[in-house]
Each structure stands twice: as C-alpha cells, then as structure tokens.
Design a protein around this nucleic acid. Structure first.
Length: 428
RNA sequence: GUGGGUGUAGCUCAGUCGGUAGAGCACCUGGUUGUGGUCCAGGAUGUCGCGGGUUCAAGUCCCGUCACUCACCCCA
C-alpha cells in the first residue's frame, strides 16, 4: 500500500462514468462560444516563464508562489501555464492575428496548473474553458462575452449562481483611486502580510474573507466613485447591453481579480452551493496587456470558466448526470462459429452507425446475458449453433424481454427503424 | 506557508469499557440443458495508513510520521 503509485497530489481524475459528464460539461461550456463566432485555438501547456511574470504580473500570488516552473537542458526557463489569457495574447502577437478583422474572437479548453494547497474545488491541475475577444473596446463586446459564459452555465442546467459585476477603471482614473485606497488601508489595523499586500496591490485587500478585515472596510473608498467620464459611460453601456442579453447580475463594487492586467469591466460567476471555492468563472477587460507583451495597443476582454467547478456545481444542484450512452446492441456468440458470426454482425452494425458491444472471454450464455444487461444495451443479439447455421440472430429486447429471430442481414435495418420510431416518439 | 478533521474489505462506513474484525453495496458460484434484471443459497476479500510505546492483551490508549480532506491566504 505504502509504495502504491498514485496521481500527483491535488490532480483530479475523471473515471467512467463521470468522465462522460466531464466531457459533456466541457462541450456545454464551449458551445455558446462557437455559436457566437469564436474559433478554437490550441496552445502550449508550458510557456516561457517571462510571459507570465510580464503578463500576469510579478506581484500576483499566481506568479510569485503558485507557478510550476522548470528549466530545460538549454537552461531556458519555463512555466506550466497558470492561466490562459497571456498565452493567447502572445500567440496573437506572434502570428499577427490582429492584422486581420477585429475583434479576433478565440476560445480554448484544457488544463492549467497552480502549485497551491489543494482543497475542495481547488486543484493543482485545473480545467478551464475560456475565450478572448481582442481588438475592440466596444461595451457591446463586454456584454457578449459575459452573456456567453452565462449561457454555458444555463445550458448545463445551473440556476443557483450569480454574476457579480464591477469596473476597475483605466490607466487614467485608477491611479487616483489607488492612492486614496492605499491611504485608507494604511490607517487600518492589519497584519504584516496584509500590509505588504496593500503596498503591492491594494485592490486585493478588498475581497479579503476574514471578518476582522471586512469589519474595517465599511467606509472604504470604491472605484465606482473615482471613475473617469469615459469609464463611467463605458460601464453604463455594458450594463445596458447586458439587459438586452437578458442577463441578470449583481453589482459588487469590491470585486477585484487576482491578476494584474484587468481594467474596466470585471466579473465573476459565483455558485451558492460550492463552499469556499465558489467561483465557477471569471474574467474581465485587459486593455493594456497587448502592449505590455510587446504588441500593438489593442484592447481585449475574456474569461475563464472552471470545468471542474462547473461539474461540482451541477452535482451540488442535484442535476441529472450527463452519462455516456451505452451501446445499443450487445452481441453474444455461443461456440466458435457463432462467435465469428457475431464479430461480423457487430462490425456491420457499427458501420451502419449503430453502437454495438459484444461478449468477450467465452463465458456461458447466462454470464453473457448478465454482461449484456449490465452494459445498459437495449438489445441483445444472440447467435448459437442453430442461428449460425440458419444465418439468423435471436434479437432480444432487454427492456421488455421479447425475443424474435430475424435474418442476420436484416438486423441493422430493423434496428435503424426501431431507433427512428423511438426518436419520433420521444420528440412528441 | 498556516490551522482543523479523518485514515478499518473494491466503494460507503460500523466496531461499546482495550480481549486477535463486521454490515450494506459491488464482485464470483449455484438454484435445468441456450437467456439478463427481482428472489434464494453459498463464496472470496483486510499489513485496521506506517513506525514506535504502554499492557498479559491495542483497530481501540500515548508519541511520532505519512497520506487524504476541509478551511485561511489566493484563485477557476
């Protein structure tokens, strides 16, 4: 037991049947992006270390203490990607995607890595579906991006979550706010680590969960009161477009994000039943990031939603699991010749688009029937010596128990008819 | 990095006042020869996380250690 190999700490695995649910969730989160014209981008899972220190920000926890880093034999420094936006922007700049039509609309899905202490819903290898829209600061785009994330959650049946919305201002108005906030925070009674955070990035003190901190924040200055004219108008329009999308939200003036690149619109989807790690998705605008990574001065907005946490949220809401469909037919052959016939039958069915499994290991009929039942198949196709000689199949409906003998070459047409009959029935 | 909780069968867990280990589910076999589910009968399964200590005797008490887990910081 002690020297049993095991998966690395904090890395979730999705085994059947849950793996089918995982894939369904990932597809469900990506589908609304595809419908809105976003195109898939597949990117490296590790990148140059400097991409993150420059892009995400040296002062963030993600970069300062949560990255998996390594050097290769050429002594180049890399990091397993802790988030998706920086990599997308790097790729857009490198390949000049922004020279085409704007905005560039991309989405991605895959694993990300953070070397944190694991807990419920917080993993060292986490899965996200994310998207980025680059090259426009149109507030209608902000609303579209948010609406797409919201749509994904709703399509998957989630209801007990809320969208928290805020704006962080821009390079013109945020510095003034930051000064006011820092002055306020420095007068508070805070522990040393928190005082350091005030210096590094005072905004991040705002969503400290500890009571002793929150109690002192009643009169804290808020960004919303320091917005410049342009940011105020932008935020107003984002909200107007959100209404047009039919999206509900809650203003959360203390909402901040852990990454340095965010500007203006920021948002987070928070689930009510998930415990401490309640964020199922979040994102915002990053109008300075492109330039900071050596590209042109183009604005952008995006989000990442947690595939793992969305799956947990569905479970927490008691939603029916999105299991894998079992094979439609389960073939059973008794004896050597019959087993050859079954192999041919199953292959023919698969070619006709009918999912088919079969019994292996030469077990008896009783055992094979048991296996057929457990597979969840709707039909058992049994061939023994008699059927092999006659060129027929015993086709048994495992739901009703009815059984009939039909010619081998008619099985697929029979089943296709059955399937369309039942589909029509289900559609009514 | 910091704090709490838990480690017993494949899974979920029970195990009293210390007396050498159990249930449910799952699994296997049988209940007629070529027919599953339900039912009945039977069966296999453990380094009680690991190491040490106390004791005639430790799953149970003590110490250490490791793992898992929840929470803080932070984030999806």
């Amino acid at each position: 037991m002690s020297d049993q190999l095991s998966a690395p700490k904090g890395v979730p695995e999705y085994l059947p049947p849950q793996s089918a649910e995982f894939m369904a969730v990932r597809e469900g989160l990506a589908a609304p992006a595809q419908l809105a014209g976003y195109q898939y981008i597949e990117l490296p899972i590790f990148e140059d270390y400097n991409l993150y220190s420059r892009g995400v920000g040296e002062s963030t926890d993600v970069v300062s203490k949560e990255m998996y880093t390594f050097t290769d034999r050429g002594n180049r420094s890399f990091a397993l990607r802790p988030e998706g936006t920086a990599g997308v922007i790097r790729s857009v700049i490198q390949h000049g995607l922004h020279r085409g039509q704007l905005p560039v609309k991309l989405y991605y899905a895959g694993p990300f890595f953070r070397a944190e202490r694991p807990q419920k819903g917080r993993y060292r290898q986490l899965q996200q579906v994310g998207l980025e829209a680059i090259g426009s600061d149109d507030p209608a785009l902000d609303a579209e991006v948010i609406a797409i994330a919201d749509q994904g959650f709703r399509d998957l049946g989630l209801t007990q979550y809320q969208l928290l919305l805020n704006t962080l201002g821009c390079a013109d108005c945020r510095p003034g706010y930051r000064v006011a906030l820092t002055e306020f925070l420095m007068r508070l009674d805070l522990d040393e680590a928190t005082r350091e955070r005030v210096q590094l990035n005072p905004l991040r003190v705002l969503d400290d969960k500890r009571d002793e901190v929150q109690q002192q924040l009643n009169d804290v200055p808020l960004m919303i009161d320091y917005l410049c004219q342009a940011c105020q108008e932008h935020y107003d329009q984002v909200r107007q477009y959100l209404r047009l999308h039919g999206v509900q939200w809650r203003e959360q003036p203390r909402l901040v994000r852990g990454l340095d690149y965010y500007t203006r619109t920021t948002f987070e989807f928070s689930h009510d039943l998930l415990g401490a790690q309640s964020g199922i998705g979040g994102g915002g605008r990053y109008d300075g990031l492109m330039a900071q990574l050596g590209g042109p001065e183009l604005p952008g907005i995006g989000y990442g939603v947690g595939t793992d946490r969305t799956l947990l949220a569905r479970e927490a809401e008691g939603l029916p699991s999105l299991g894998a469909a079992p094979a439609m037919v389960y073939g059973i052959g008794l004896g050597d010749i019959a087993r050859e016939r079954v192999t041919q039958l199953v292959t023919g069915l698969r070619n006709a688009g009918i999912s088919a499994d079969m019994a292996f290991g030469g077990r008896g009929l009783k055992g094979a029937m048991k296996a057929a039942d457990r597979s969840g198949a709707r039909w058992a196709a049994i061939i023994g010596d008699d059927e092999a000689a006659a060129g027929t199949v015993q086709l048994k409906d495992l739901g009703s128990g009815e059984q009939q003998e039909i010619n081998s070459d008619q099985v697929s047409t029979f089943l296709l008819n059955q399937r369309s009959k039942e589909d029509n029935h289900a559609a009514q």
